[in-house]
């Protein structure tokens, strides 16, 4: 472990954190702009040219609002809830391969913070940890509606984690590895997993909508039934953390979908570029393009589809997605047996 390695990793981690925060920040603006477009309005356009400074204005507003901690609420847990949500949203990016290796200053610099060989499972672990932020916050608020919302949200997340895990088993049967880097490498050229696993991708995508609490699965924050949701009692930046974590989660799950099913940093004609650094940088740009397209898709769905009822949500998760995922596993197994991949 030399100093250069530590510095390299520190720079990479800071850059990834900054990029994910900035993208999440501007996703909030994009969401409101697209909402305006879909509803034939202008959207926010007061702060800066075309409303580009709107996220900053929102941030300043949230930071300067009065902070209220309800009496009879456990103060430590009350603060821990949103912090945990934000923390789990940020740490998933550690295993995502952002691009091929760069060669700089005579060193081989990997554009991935940690290439652990259980990368996919690490993502699942962090996703399952994300439930705690909501549950702790909802319970510590000392409010019946918050608690109900927290419980509802936790059961939603647990239910969809199962289908998500099953959908990814079919993919892992094909790739034969749990490392996100190797999965990305296997998809070089146009050998993307989406062509072999369309059903698996569909299930995975629906589940990631549910895990990030996006419409049509945004039941954790249902104003008509629950006042606000698990964050009813929260104010100022603690509320901001809950809302912001959702956007970071969107970014992260877009990145995971892109690297698992849509070739990650691979793009057609990659081997034609002789300079490895240029090829790698174009790869990073291609990866971010894919991520932004997925984020657009998240926004598009939100302003097109209405919210599910709670029983419909549970029915979809347990009676449709899980059997479909199991069928997909069987089909994949048969495919591997007869065609050898």
């Amino acid at each position: 472990m030399d100093i250069a390695f530590i510095i390299e990793k520190l720079i990479l981690i800071s850059a990834i954190l900054a990029i994910s925060l900035v993208i999440a920040m501007y996703t909030t603006l994009a969401e409101r702009k697209f909402a305006g477009f879909f509803q034939d309005r202008v959207g926010p356009n007061r702060a800066g040219p075309w409303g580009l400074l709107q996220p900053l204005a929102d941030g300043v507003k949230l930071f300067t609002k009065e902070e209220i901690i309800p009496t009879h609420a456990g103060t430590f847990l009350f603060v821990l809830g949103p912090s945990l949500s934000m923390f789990t949203a940020c740490i998933t990016t550690a295993v995502i391969p952002w691009g091929q290796d760069l060669f700089l200053f005579g060193r081989n610099i990997s554009l991935q913070v940690a290439d652990i060989n259980v990368g996919v499972l690490y993502v699942f672990g962090v996703v399952s940890l994300g439930v705690y932020g909501v549950m702790i916050g909802g319970w510590a608020s000392n409010n019946k509606f918050s608690l109900l919302a927290a419980v509802r949200s936790a059961s939603q997340n647990i239910s969809y984690e199962i289908a998500m895990g099953l959908s990814i088993i079919a993919l892992l049967m094909m790739t034969g590895t749990l490392s996100l880097r190797e999965i990305s490498e296997q998809q070089s050229g146009m050998n993307w997993n989406i062509f072999y696993q369309p059903l698996g991708f569909l299930i995975f995508m629906i589940c990631s909508f549910a895990e990030t609490n996006r419409t049509p699965f945004d039941l954790p924050e249902c104003e008509t039934e629950l006042v606000g949701g698990h964050h009813t009692e929260y104010s100022s930046m603690k509320l901001g953390f809950y809302l912001f974590a959702e956007y970071i989660n969107m970014f992260v799950s877009s990145a995971i979908m892109a690297s698992l099913y849509f070739g990650g940093y691979n793009y057609p004609g990659m081997h034609l570029i002789s300079n490895p650094n240029v090829a790698a940088l174009i790869g990073v740009a291609a990866f971010f393009t894919k991520i932004l397209l997925f984020i657009f898709f998240f926004i598009w769905v939100r302003w097109t589809v209405p919210r599910f009822r709670y029983d419909q949500l549970m029915k979809l998760g347990w009676k449709v997605l899980i059997p479909l995922a199991i069928i997909n596993i069987a089909l994949t197994g048969a495919g591997i047996l007869f065609f050898g991949k």
């Binding site: 652990i116 060989n117 690490y122 699942f124 672990g125 996703v127 399952s128 940890l129 549950m135 984690e161």
Partner: peptide, 24 residues
């Protein structure tokens, strides 16, 4: 690593959430 991550997912992510759930 595998045992670690499974312990993480199953015990921390699933079983404890259910226990917390029922206590609430």
């Amino acid at each position: 690593q595998f045992l670690a991550i499974v312990n993480f997912i199953v015990y921390m992510g699933a079983i404890m959430v259910l226990i917390l759930f029922s206590i609430m």
